[in-house]
Design a protein around this nucleic acid. Structure first.
Lengths: 245, 245
DNA sequence: TGGCAACGTAACAGCGTGTAACAAATTGCG
DNA sequence: CGCAATTTGTTACACGCTGTTACGTTGCCA
């Protein structure tokens, strides 16, 4: 994944500078902002992965801004506040903040929260099937079953081989159900010759899974969709929606 | 608890004397020190519950000393400094100080901070479950059940293995209740195949507990949360709160 | 205090998985 | 049909997790 782009929103210039500087030192891209307008401008001008939003913004109210943003888009938000009272915290969660951190905070804790929220945000996406176009949409990807090709979130196109396509179809037919290597192999060979010997010698399925992961997972090393069920087999762990439109 | 033993570290003799005297008048045992060597000597010679550490120690650097100490032991530290700038405070927290106080300080404020830190350090950690984020917070740690990972108070992240996660879940389901090795093993194998032989030969649970302790206890040698009940088994001794938010 | 049982844990071995590198099979195209 | 490019399967090695063993330490009781 590319470097996460964070938006640091605070009306106190010192705080803003300190936070952006600290986040940059730790490998993030941090952009400063101090009002709701500036937030919206940034959102229009480029990708933002996470917003760090101060609750007290002069005459504006961070909680309200948070609620507004949530109504529009689904960008993760961490609320930052000098008030650690519990009711404040609850109000934060209620408007849909992903986390809450009190000032003054431990910088390492901030980092941990930021990383946790970012990771949570990119986890298990849902799967949608559009009857109209006969396409699957999952994890930001679009899969055209007719043309055996896949289009990534940023529009990049990947061609799947025959075998990879077949595997993907088997998995798409059984979301959330762990399939053993034998089951997968059997399903794949339905089209092929009669019966495969029940004891497949090799690790063909493992390698095939690896190759499919390399193509459709953002982080193949830490797969979010095509997961391993140790001692069992593999699962496609996405939620399914069918758009009948 | 016995009388808390505090170590007052400052290179200015007046300051040192004033602080120790004041703390003694208020019921503490206060020991003076003025260098890193002296600190180490004191730590070897007897129990120290809290260190009040001046940031400016002539040619030594309090922040560095703090970081060093933290790497070795888990004694609470309050940094004292003439500089109140926020980034100083952040630097302090970054190296693991428990609190930060600026000179000149209100003596009553110092007392309050000292008491707060001491209490925080010795109190039985509590356990909270936040439905919203599906996370456990216990003993300063945050445990994300979904992702099998744990975030420590200072933001360090630890991944738990499958087995460790299972153990932690079993324990979290039975706080304050001592569980025998057999009970734990049984609970762990619910997911696994039919029945384990009732007499497990080995010490698998002991080793597993040890490994989990190494990850979630600040002082694995002297566990505060995952305790041994000699002759019985193990207990998770934390208080539970559920935030239903 | 000595002796013994319970406990902690380092070291090791077995297993399942990921994957790079190679070999075999298949496909596409002149 | 022949040949190159691509796809597919096989093998070998590395790595992380788990349970076992062995030995040192701790705590209890006579």
């Amino acid at each position: 994944m590319t470097i996460p782009r964070l938006l640091v929103v605070d009306d106190d210039a010192d705080m803003r500078q300190m936070m952006t500087q600290f986040l940059r030192q730790n490998g993030f891209i941090a952009l400063p902002a101090q009002s709701e307008d500036e937030i919206l401008t940034h959102l229009e001008n480029g990708r933002i992965d996470l917003i760090l939003l101060d609750v007290m913004l002069g005459n504006e109210n961070g909680v309200e801004i948070c609620a507004n943003l949530r109504r529009e888009q689904d960008i993760p938000i961490i609320l930052v506040s000098a008030l650690s009272a519990d009711h404040q915290r609850m109000a934060g969660y209620e408007v849909g903040a992903d986390d809450y951190i009190a000032k003054p905070f431990n910088p390492q804790l901030l980092l941990a929260r930021v990383r946790a929220v970012l990771q949570r945000a990119q986890r298990t996406p849902s799967l949608a099937y559009r009857r109209k176009t006969r396409t699957f949409h999952f994890g930001g990807w679009t899969y055209n079953a007719k043309k055996d090709e896949v289009i990534s979130p940023d529009g990049f196109q990947v061609a799947l081989s025959r075998r990879e396509t077949a595997l993907l179809n088997v998995l798409l037919a059984n979301p959330h159900i762990p399939l053993t290597r034998e089951e997968i192999a059997a399903a794949l060979d339905v089209t092929a010759s009669g019966d495969a010997s029940p004891e497949a010698t090799g690790r063909a399925i493992d390698v095939l899974v690896g190759r499919l992961r390399a193509k459709i997972e953002k982080t193949p090393k830490d797969p979010r969709m095509l997961r391993t069920e140790r001692g069992v087999g593999y699962v496609l762990s996405v939620d399914v929606t069918v758009e009948d439109t």
